[in-house]
Amino acid sequence: MEFENIVTENNEGILHIIINRPKKLNALNRDTIQELHEAFTDAREDEEVKVVILTGSGEKAFVAGADISEFADFSAEEGRELAAKGQANLFDFVANFPKPVIAAVNGFALGGGLELAMAAHFRVASDNAKMGLPETSLGLIPGYGGTQRLPQLVGKGRAMEMIMTAGMIDAKQALQYNLVNHVCEPDELIEFTEKIAQKIMRNSLVAMSAAIRAVNANYEDGVNGFEVEISEFGSSFATEDFKEGTSAFLNKRKADFPGK
Rank of each mutant, 00 (worst) to 15 (best):
N178Y: 06
G112I: 05
E81M: 14
S75G: 08
S75F: 10
M164S: 15
D92E: 15
A72W: 00
G143I: 13
E188Y: 05
H121N: 03
E185G: 03
I102E: 03
Q152E: 15
V183D: 01
D127G: 02
E185D: 12
V124C: 10
M168L: 14
Q148P: 00
G155K: 09
E188T: 04
N96E: 13
M162H: 03
N106T: 15
R80N: 13
G107Y: 04
E115N: 11
P100Y: 02
F74S: 08
I163Q: 09
C184P: 08
P98H: 06
P186N: 13
T147M: 14
E185K: 15
E161M: 10
V94Q: 00
H182W: 07
G112P: 05
E161I: 09
A72T: 11
G111L: 01
V105W: 10
P100K: 02
L110M: 13
Y144C: 05
P142C: 01
F122M: 02
L138T: 05
F93V: 01
A88M: 13
A129L: 00
M162Q: 12
Y144Q: 11
I190Y: 08
C184A: 10
D73R: 03
M162T: 07
K156E: 13
K156Q: 15
N128I: 14
P151Y: 11
R149I: 09
I102Q: 04
L140M: 14
T193G: 09
L189S: 12
G155P: 07
I190F: 07
E78Y: 04
A120R: 02
L116E: 02
A103L: 04
V183W: 10
I141Y: 10
N106H: 14
M162G: 03
H182T: 11
G132W: 10
F74R: 08
V101T: 09
A119P: 04
F192N: 09
D127C: 09
N181W: 02
A119W: 01
L114T: 10
V101R: 03
D92Q: 13
G146N: 11
Q87S: 06
V124P: 06
N128K: 09
G146E: 07
P151F: 11
E194M: 01
Q87T: 09
P100R: 00
T165N: 12
V183P: 08
P134S: 11
